Simulated assay, not measured.
Amino acid sequence: MGSGAQLTVTDLRQATRHPVEYRVTGEHRRLGDVDLKIINISAHGFMTEGDCTLQRGERIVIRLPQLGQIEAHMIWMTNGRAGFQFERIIRLEDFMKLVDALQPNPRLRPLRR
Score class of each variant (00 low, 15 high):
Gly4Tyr: 07
Gly4Glu: 12
Ala5Leu: 00
Ala5Asp: 12
Ala5His: 06
Gln6Thr: 14
Leu7Trp: 04
Val9His: 09
Thr10Cys: 00
Asp11Cys: 08
Asp11Ser: 14
Leu12Pro: 00
Leu12Thr: 12
Leu12Ser: 03
Leu12Gln: 09
Arg13Pro: 08
Gln14Cys: 06
Ala15His: 08
Thr16Cys: 04
Thr16Glu: 10
Arg17Trp: 10
Arg17Leu: 15
His18Ile: 07
His18Cys: 13
Pro19His: 03
Pro19Ser: 03
Val20Cys: 04
Glu21Cys: 09
Glu21Leu: 09
Glu21Phe: 10
Tyr22His: 15
Tyr22Lys: 02
Val24Cys: 01
Glu27Asn: 08
His28Tyr: 09
His28Ser: 07
His28Ala: 00
Arg29Thr: 15
Arg29Ile: 10
Arg30Ile: 15
Arg30Thr: 15
Leu31His: 11
Leu31Val: 00
Leu31Asp: 02
Gly32Ala: 02
Val34Trp: 01
Val34Pro: 08
Asp35Pro: 14
Lys37Ser: 11
Ile38Cys: 10
Ile38Val: 15
Ile39Glu: 07
Asn40Ser: 08
Ile41Tyr: 02
Ile41Val: 15
Ser42Pro: 13
Ala43Asn: 09
Ala43Leu: 04
His44Ile: 01
Gly45Ser: 12
Gly45Thr: 04
Gly45Ala: 04
Gly45Phe: 10
Phe46Ile: 00
Met47Lys: 12
Thr48His: 05
Thr48Phe: 04
Glu49Trp: 00
Glu49Val: 04
Glu49Leu: 11
Glu49Cys: 04
Glu49Gln: 13
Gly50Cys: 06
Gly50Val: 10
Asp51Glu: 01
Cys52Phe: 14
Cys52Ala: 07
Thr53His: 14
Gly57Lys: 05
Gly57Ala: 06
Glu58Ser: 05
Arg59Lys: 10
Arg59Glu: 12
Ile60Asp: 09
Ile60Trp: 11
Val61Gly: 06
Val61Met: 02
Ile62Arg: 02
Ile62Trp: 07
Ile62Lys: 11
Ile62Ala: 07
Arg63Glu: 07
Gln66Thr: 14
Gln66Leu: 01
Gln66Gly: 01
Leu67Thr: 02
Leu67Ser: 02
Leu67Trp: 04
Gly68Lys: 03
Gly68Ala: 04
Gly68Asn: 05
Gly68His: 05
Gly68Tyr: 03
Gly68Ser: 11
Ile70Cys: 02
Ile70Asn: 04
His73Ile: 03
Met74Gly: 04
Ile75Thr: 06
Trp76Lys: 03
Trp76Val: 01
Trp76Thr: 05
Thr78Leu: 14
Gly80Cys: 08
Gly80Ser: 05
Gly80Glu: 08
Gly80Gln: 01
Ala82Leu: 12
Gly83Trp: 13
Phe84Leu: 05
Phe84Ala: 05
Phe84Asp: 05
Gln85Asp: 07
Phe86Lys: 01
Phe86Gly: 12
Glu87Val: 00
Glu87Cys: 02
Glu87Ser: 08
Ile89Gly: 10
Ile89Cys: 00
Ile89Arg: 06
Ile89Phe: 01
Ile89His: 03
Ile90Val: 13
Arg91His: 00
Leu92Trp: 07
Leu92Cys: 02
Glu93Ala: 07
Glu93Gln: 10
Asp94Arg: 09
Asp94Phe: 01
Phe95Val: 07
Lys97Cys: 13
Leu98Phe: 11
Leu98Ile: 03
Asp100Phe: 10
Asp100Ile: 05
Asp100Asn: 13
Ala101Asn: 11
Ala101Pro: 12
Ala101Asp: 14
Leu102Ile: 08
Pro104Ser: 09
Pro104Cys: 01
Arg107Ser: 14
Arg107Glu: 14
Leu108Asn: 14
Leu108Val: 01
